[in-house]
Amino acid sequence: MAFHVSLLLKALLVLAVAVTELASQDTRKFTIVNNCKETVWPGITNSGSFNGSVFALKTGQTAGYTVSATWSGRIWGRTGCKFDKSGSGSCQTGGCGTSLNCTGPGSPPVSIAEFTLGEPDYYDVSLVSGFNLPIVIKTVNAKGNCSTAGCDGDLRSSCPSGLAVKSDGKVIACDSACDVFNTDEYCCRGGFATADACRPSNYSKAFKSFCPDAYSYAKDDQTSLKTCSSPEYVVSFCSARNGTICSVHKGELNCNGSTGLRASFYGWWLLAIVLPMIVGTHQFLGFIM
């Protein structure tokens, strides 16, 4: 009897590996890195339903996340958060209501990494809703030469007068001119909704000088929107654009070819494959024994 059970478990293991490899072809891997001097609570949302997961990353921590190959959504960082055991609380910047797990977009001012995956992928870092943290997007194992997107300059240190958001006298974020002044010109709406009419303002130019590879206003497409084919992504908070690239592979952190560091990895597809097999195995073994 033990011999048959052993064969069954081996067969299930082979099947799980095969199905996992097949499923990975329809998924994309993201590695999220926190190089800030403070804890960051990443927010991850889907552009349609805004369903996402969240985790806290202390300084130097890295985590992996898996999405479908046609995912469209955003990633951003929340700062100054306090949550109780039930997951209820608030954040100084980037908060998504009172919940630890985001079901909606981050509240401005917030720096946002945006993705529309497909063939090809489109990605960018947007400061249209203001700035709270430097964000850089890098690609790994991509087909072709894919550009780095984002902002490694800290606008909080030179936020234009009138846009600074402070807490205890310290600038914690930099608001957008649209949110502060709420005019059609700054918000690129009404008579300023077209690409020709929507022009950079002195405020957006200040953003652009610090962050040349990020959206500084709504129609800032030519220098900000990037494309790539079938890459893995590394989204880093407070990282240099030409710094070390780290990504998660099979639960290990790989930094420019060096492996060995363990990292958390989140994904919906592995549980969806393995869990039914485990349950089915227990039921079958109970039946034959």
Rank of each mutant, 00 (worst) to 15 (best):
Y203T: 08
F131T: 00
S129D: 15
L225W: 10
G64L: 06
A23N: 04
A113S: 05
I112V: 10
M277F: 12
H282K: 09
T27D: 05
S68T: 15
A11L: 12
V274F: 03
G118W: 05
G190F: 05
E21N: 10
V248D: 01
K37A: 15
K219F: 06
T62Q: 00
N132H: 05
L155P: 01
P120A: 06
S247R: 07
L22S: 11
V235Q: 00
K143I: 14
R156L: 01
S24Q: 11
D221T: 13
C96W: 02
G150H: 06
A63L: 07
G94N: 02
K29P: 15
L270K: 11
K219Q: 10
I135C: 06
T227Y: 12
R78A: 04
K170E: 13
D221M: 08
N202H: 13
N242A: 12
T45P: 02
K143D: 14
H4Y: 11
P120V: 06
T93S: 04
C151N: 03
L275C: 10
T27N: 09
V140N: 00
D154C: 01
R189K: 14
F131M: 01
V110K: 01
G48S: 13
N101V: 14
A63P: 09
C187D: 03
D26I: 07
G73K: 03
V274I: 12
R199N: 10
A195R: 11
C96P: 02
F237W: 05
E119H: 13
P109D: 01
C174W: 02
G243A: 06
L261M: 11
L15Y: 13
F210R: 15
W71K: 05
V279K: 08
I273L: 13
G118A: 11
G97W: 07
C81V: 04
D175P: 07
G190Q: 06
G118Q: 04
V125K: 03
T27L: 08
D168K: 14
L15G: 11
L253F: 02
R241M: 12
F287W: 10
I273N: 07
P231R: 05
K219T: 07
T259W: 09
A69G: 08
V110S: 03
G106Q: 00
R28Y: 14
G190L: 03
K138D: 04
L22W: 14
T259S: 14
S49G: 11
S209I: 06
L15V: 11
G97P: 07
T259V: 09
N254K: 09
T103C: 09
P134A: 01
N256C: 07
A142K: 03
A2L: 08
C246R: 03
G94Y: 00
S90V: 12
A56T: 09
S53N: 12
K82L: 08
T79R: 12
Y215H: 03
S201P: 04
F50Y: 13
V67C: 07
A206Q: 12
L155R: 02
R156Y: 01
G77K: 00
A240V: 08
C211E: 02
T27W: 06
C228M: 05
I135Y: 04
G243R: 04
S86Q: 12
A240M: 09
S236G: 09
A263N: 05
N254A: 06
I32A: 03
G87N: 04
A142E: 05
I172R: 04
S72K: 15
V171K: 00
G52F: 05
S86D: 13
P200M: 00
G260E: 03
G257H: 06
T244Q: 11
